[in-house]
């Protein structure tokens, strides 16, 4: 059965970037406010799932040539290594630090090592959610 999916395809092209931008905002918002790697990652994977719904697997694979299993593994590696950073500096595992950096265009920004850990979480969530969707949806 071939559905006429012009509406969803056109909408996706607009909405996708809004969702992705918002997910990145949520991801960076996570240190002091609601948000973080988990929810940002889920939102990103929702965006990519929307892409999968509108187009087919081959197209999405061409746009995003990423192996999601490798993405999951690198996320885990980043999170673990960030935790071990504390050990390197003589503190306990998972201890974090933060500092204020002056960036051009953004002004004074607080950067925390917890962000790196959250980046790992983000990768793991995106990778595993999309691996699951690929696994269920891929063989139909």
């Amino acid at each position: 059965m071939k559905l006429n999916d012009i509406v969803i395809q056109t909408t996706t092209k607009f909405v996708l970037f809004i969702i992705l931008a918002f997910s990145i905002f949520i991801f960076f918002n996570g240190h002091h406010h609601p948000g973080g790697g988990f929810i940002g990652g889920l939102m990103t994977s929702a965006a990519i799932t929307l892409l999968l719904l509108a187009f087919d697997f081959e197209t999405v694979k061409r746009i995003l040539p990423i192996d999601f299993k490798i993405l999951t593994a690198s996320g885990m590696l980043i999170a673990t290594l960030t935790g071990m950073g504390g050990l390197v500096f003589g503190g306990p595992f998972l201890s974090h630090t933060f500092g204020y950096v002056h960036l051009p265009f953004f002004g004074e920004v607080e950067l925390a090592t917890a962000l790196l850990f959250d980046l790992g979480v983000y990768f793991v969530v995106v990778g595993s959610a999309l691996t699951i969707i690929e696994m269920i949806g891929g063989d139909q």
Binding site: K69, I70, T72, A73, S74, L77, T80, M84, L87, F93
Partner: peptide
């Protein structure tokens, strides 16, 4: 802590 980190890291490395 190393008791937990060694098998965890080994598992993660082998995912690649």
């Amino acid at each position: 802590i190393w008791t937990l980190l060694i098998p965890l890291l080994a598992g993660i490395i082998m995912l690649f």
